[in-house]
Amino acid sequence: MSRPNTGEIDPKDTARAEIRSYAIGFVASLLLTGGAFAVHLSGLSVSWKIALICAAALVQIVVHLRKFLHLSFSGEQSREDLLLVLFSVCLLAIMAGGTWYVMADLGERMHQSGMDGAPMHSMSAD
């Protein structure tokens, strides 16, 4: 019952190192979230804003997996972790790619311009 649940947590590890790992993850996540808001409030062009926010989101995913979920490609769990990442990426690609495929097609048939079927009048309605 007292076995660790992941290969990452070694009972011999000091609590200090573990807390530091969590703290780094927490601070990095805060910075990336705050950074995304800062980008939104900044005066950059829309395409730059979108690119930067997406990049921050992706980096944040990696931080969460690494620091909070103890995913690693070295150590006794590396094979399972790799499979998990590949499988997740595969399913997410199916979902995101499928959504893009379906919604773009619908948008085209609705004679909408813009990305993913966002209607043209989206800015003028309010």
Binding site: M95, G98, T99, V102, M103, L106, G117, A118, P119, H121, S122, M123, A125, D126
Partner: peptide, 16 residues
């Protein structure tokens, strides 16, 4: 319906 909404995406996500 208005202000940039797209109800078709609900069906898409729900059935995912």
């Amino acid at each position: 319906n208005d202000a940039g909404g797209n109800m078709m995406n609900y069906a898409n996500i729900f059935w995912m």
